[in-house]
Amino acid sequence: MGILLDGEKLKKGIRKKTKIADLLASLEMSRETVIVKVNNRIVTEFDSAGPADKIDIIRVSTGG
């Protein structure tokens, strides 16, 4: 279903089941800086998501 970063859809998607830690690494994001929701449920970096899942990446620190 796609990946949202703070509500904005990213161009990048996933083609197969992927561990959240690997997804964050491919996006060059530190796990320290985000919380991830898969289908509206908060998950850890050890969980996985597939192409049909809705992935929300929420930046922890927005500055300001």
């Binding site: 703070d6 929420i58 930046r59 927005t62 500055g63 300001g64």
Partner: peptide, 9 residues
């Protein structure tokens, strides 16, 4: 509210 301050950069 989760948004970046426009001057924070």
């Amino acid at each position: 509210h989760n948004a970046e301050c426009p001057y924070a950069h």
